[in-house]
Design a protein around this nucleic acid. Structure first.
Lengths: 336, 336
DNA sequence: TTGTACGCGTTATCAG
DNA sequence: CTGATAACGCGTACAA
C-alpha cells in the first residue's frame, strides 16, 4: 500500500507538499497540485487514516450508545443525529450496551483515547461521578436520561409531567382503577414516569393501590408478563398505563389473550410514540416525544462541545405531546 | 495525559519494560512489574489506543453494516454476532447505511485504513466488483444477501426456496388469488422471494396475475401503501404473501382499515419472523430465519478471515422453518 | 531480564 | 510557495 512518501518521491516533491494538497491548503501551485494528483491516481494512494487520526487526534466519527437495538424508539432520534452529523462531516457509529457497564466503560475509554470525537449516550449505566467527570474533559451528551443533580450536557423531555398528563387524561375519561406498568424503576427515566402517575392520583385524592403497580422488563415481553401477573392475581382494573409503547403492546396482547377487549374492556396507554404505536391494532394513545428534535439537539450540543464552545445552556428540556388514538376508546378526542 | 514515557521515567525503567508489562509479556520480574504498576496507578496512565492501533494495525473493533436500524430483523442477528465477538475479545460497532452508497463506501474505507478489523454487511449497495475485490484483501462477510456468481464469504438462507414453500402452504389452504408484496425488487433478496412465489404458482399451473404483484418500500408503511393501492384498484384476492414481516404488518393494518378481517377475509403471510410477528394481532404466519445462528456463523467466518485462515467453505446456506400462526387462519397447523 | 533505538504515516513548524 | 524535519505514542528487534 502506497504511502505519502512514495507519492512524494514519485512526484519529486516533499511529503509536506503532498500533505498540503491532500488537505487542500491554498498555498500550492496549480501545476504542482496536478502533478501530484496524477501520481496519487497512478499509485492508487489512500492516506492512512489511522496515521492521520493518530497525528491529529480526530476521527470524524461520533458514537451513539443505546441500551437495546430492539427499542425502536431510537430510530428516529438517530435519524436526527445522522442528519446533523452528515451536514457537518461526521459519521455516526452505534453501539448497544445491554445494561453491561463493562461495555459502556469500554466505549467511554474509546472516547478518552480519541477513537471517537464524541459520544451521545442514551444509556447511563456507569457510575454517575465518573460520567460527570469525563463529561468535563470530553464531548459527551446524555439524552433521554436525567440524573439527579447532574451537571452535564443533557437533552430530555419532562417525563414526570408527561406521565402526570396522560394519567390525568385517563382519570378524565372516568377511569379510577388504573394499573401502572413502570417497566424497570431502577432506571431513573421509568421512575420519573411512575412518579408522574403517583402524583396525578394523589392530586385527585385517589388511593394508590400497590397491587396495581407491576414492574417488569421494559419491553414487549415485559408488558405481556406484567399483565399476566395482574390477571392471575385477580386484580380489578379498567385501564393500564404503561411507561413505554413496547410495554403497552405486550400488555394489549396479554389482555386480548385473556379474552379482554382493548379499549372497550380495558383502556391502555403507551409512552414514546414509536412507529408501531400508530400502526398497531388498536393504535396507541401515547406521549409523543419529539424524537427527531432530540437527535438534532443532541448532535448540535455535541458539535459545540467538540468545537470547544461554551454551551448556551447545559440542559435542554423539549416539549412533548399527548397523542390520542384507539387504545383508550376516546373517539371524540381521537386524532391520527 | 500521561504517556508511556512518563511512566518509564517515573518508575526508573525503559519504555520497553512498561510496554512489556502492559502486554503482559512473561519475561519481566515481579518486583519490576509491581513498581511499574504502582506508577501507572499513580499517574492514572492509559495507553493511547490510537497510537497502539497505528502501531499494531489492529483495533479490536468490528463493524456491522445494516440497511436500516428500523428493521427489527437485525436485532437477534446482532446478538449472535456480539456473543461470538465478546468471547473473542472484539467489540461490535454498528452503522446504518440508508441505501446511501457513499456512506457504505466510507465505512469500507475505514476497513481499508484499518479503523476496523473486519466488516459484516447486511447491505450490498456498492458495486459488486468493488466489494468482491475488497473481500479478497480484507475481512468481509456478506450476510442475508446473495449476489449472483459472487465469490466471497457469505451466510444466508435459500430465500427462493423458502418463499416457494410458504406460497405452497397458501395454495394448500386453497388460496388461488394470492397477492405478492415483494418489497423492493431492486434488492436481490426480495427478487429471490418474488421468484419463489412465481415458481410455486407456475409449478401448479396457476396463472400469474401481474395486477396482484405490488412493489413498495420494504417496511410497514410500504406494506400499507401497497395494499391500499391493490384495494383502490379493486383487485380481488383471498391472500397476501409478503416478502417481509414489516410489509405484512402494514398490509394487515390496511386490510383492517378497509373493513377486512385477517385471516377470515384475507390470509396474510410474512417473512423473517421478527419479534413482533408472534406478538402482533393477528400473529403472523411466516418464515423463520435462524437469526442468532446467522449472526454466530457470520462472526465466526469473520474471525477466521481476520486470523488469515482459509475458510472451510465460502458460502453457508442455513436452514429455515415455516411458522404457522393466526394470520393464515389455519388453526389446525397452528403453533406458538 | 532489561534497555536502546528505530519505525509506523501523517501533520505542522520553521526556514528558505 | 516549498522542503526538511520534528513530533505524535507505542511496540519490538536487537543488543546488552
Amino acid at each position: 500500500m502506497a504511502t505519502i512518501q512514495d507519492v512524494a518521491r514519485e512526484a519529486g516533491v516533499s511529503t509536506a507538499t503532498v500533505s498540503r494538497i491532500l488537505n487542500n491548503s491554498p498555498k500550492v501551485l496549480p501545476e504542482t497540485r496536478e502533478k501530484v494528483m496524477a501520481v496519487i491516481e497512478k499509485l492508487n494512494y489512500n492516506p492512512n487514516r489511522l496515521a492521520q487520526q493518530f497525528r491529529t487526534q480526530e476521527t470524524g466519527n461520533i458514537l451513539v450508545l443505546i441500551p437495546e437495538l430492539a427499542n425502536t424508539f431510537y430510530y428516529e432520534i438517530i435519524f436526527g443525529i445522522e442528519d446533523v452529523a452528515k451536514a457537518n462531516g461526521y459519521h455516526v457509529l452505534i453501539a448497544e450496551i445491554h445494561n453491561d457497564s463493562h461495555a459502556e466503560d469500554y466505549f467511554f475509554e474509546c472516547l478518552k483515547q480519541k477513537q471517537m470525537d464524541g459520544i451521545i449516550t442514551f444509556s447511563a449505566g456507569i457510575a454517575l461521578e465518573r460520567l460527570e467527570a469525563m463529561s468535563r474533559q470530553f464531548p459527551i451528551v446524555v439524552s433521554c436520561r436525567y440524573c439527579e443533580g447532574m451537571q452535564m450536557p443533557n437533552v430530555t423531555i419532562d417525563n414526570e409531567k408527561a406521565s402526570r398528563d396522560i394519567t390525568n387524561y385517563l382519570l378524565n375519561l372516568g377511569h379510577r382503577r388504573i394499573c401502572c406498568l413502570p417497566g424497570n424503576t431502577g432506571i431513573r427515566l421509568y421512575q420519573d414516569r411512575l412518579n408522574g402517575y403517583l402524583k396525578a392520583l394523589k392530586e385527585r385524592r385517589i388511593e394508590v393501590l400497590p397491587e396495581l403497580i407491576c414492574e417488569s422488563a421494559a419491553d414487549i415481553q415485559g408488558g405481556y408478563d406484567a399483565v399476566e401477573r395482574l390477571i392471575n392475581a385477580d386484580a380489578k382494573f379498567t385501564a393500564v398505563l404503561t411507561c413505554g409503547d413496547t410495554l403497552a403492546i405486550g400488555a394489549i396482547k396479554a389482555l386480548q389473550n385473556s379474552g379482554l377487549n382493548v379499549p372497550s374492556d380495558v383502556a391502555v396507554t403507551g409512552f414514546d410514540d414509536i412507529e408501531l404505536a400508530s400502526l398497531y391494532s388498536p393504535s396507541l394513545t401515547t406521549v409523543r416525544q419529539p424524537k427527531r428534535q432530540i437527535g438534532i439537539r443532541s448532535m448540535e450540543k455535541l458539535l459545540d462541545l467538540i468545537a470547544g464552545k461554551k454551551l448556551a445552556n447545559l440542559q435542554d428540556v423539549l416539549s412533548y405531546e399527548l397523542v390520542i388514538r384507539e387504545s383508550t376508546g376516546d373517539f371524540i378526542g381521537q386524532q391520527s
